[in-house]
């Protein structure tokens, strides 16, 4: 029964990085503008347009890595995550898979059960996609303003034993990100997390992932 299972969960947090311009182009990195006004050939993925990495994105990622006590790698690489969706103009997302920006580190949390340190697996850079809006008449429109906004994805080890700990971690990470000026933590404007949850009963392990905003 359920009592035979223990929760072993981790969290992946996607945080929008505070910078003046987007990750790979000079478009302003801002929330709330009129649709499709903060765009250019690069973030629209037009043929022939190529990305230029924004130096400030790397600086912000470095600040976060230091704050977590993570190891910043001298070499890291960008990879393409290929999939088809209307709000992904290039048909791929520029992300990091094989060689992320940073690995390791930890974050102190205060949960009901007391103070703990949650280990960080990795932190990597990627770009955000646009926003689809489904209209009452059944049609769908896409706003590309958010395409190319820089994100940092922080993955924790699967060390949470309760929803309370996961919540404490989220609060602590948000506070840290805001304090060091890497993310403004506005939930209605930014991302929250995708959960990675495993249920363990002895040697048996089930895995599933779901998202919450």
């Amino acid at each position: 029964m359920m009592s035979a299972y223990e929760i072993v969960a981790g969290l992946e947090i996607h945080a929008q990085i505070v910078t003046r311009t987007k990750a790979f182009c000079r478009c302003p990195n801002q929330y709330g503008a009129a649709p499709n006004t903060l765009v250019c050939p690069v973030c629209l993925g037009m043929p022939g347009a190529l990305p230029i990495l924004n130096r400030e994105v790397v600086a912000q990622a470095a600040r976060l890595a230091r704050a977590l006590g993570a190891t910043i790698h001298n070499q890291s690489r960008f990879d393409r995550k290929n999939y088809f969706y209307p709000d992904l103009p290039k048909g791929y997302q520029i992300s990091q898979f094989y060689q992320p920006f940073a690995t390791g580190g930890r974050l102190r949390i205060d949960a009901n059960a007391g103070e703990r340190y949650i280990s960080i697996t990795r932190a990597h850079l990627e770009e955000d996609a646009g926003k689809s809006m489904h209209l009452p008449d059944g049609s769908t429109v896409v706003d590309m303003n958010r395409c190319g906004v820089p994100l940092i994805e922080i993955v924790s080890e699967p060390e949470f034993r309760s929803p309370d700990e996961a919540g404490a971690y989220l609060s602590a990470m948000r506070e840290l990100l805001r304090f060091i000026g890497v993310c403004d933590g506005n939930m209605e404007e930014g991302h929250c997390a995708a959960t990675r949850m495993s249920l363990c009963a002895g040697a048996v392990r089930l895995s599933s992932a779901s998202a919450l905003r």
């Binding site: 993925g45 043929p47 393409r80 290929n82 088809f84 209307p86 103009p89 290039k90 048909g91 791929y92 896409v142």
Partner: peptide
């Protein structure tokens, strides 16, 4: 090429 041509998708 398969990646670079993904953007020609009928949406735009």
């Amino acid at each position: 090429a398969s990646s670079n041509l993904a953007r020609f998708d009928g949406v735009r």
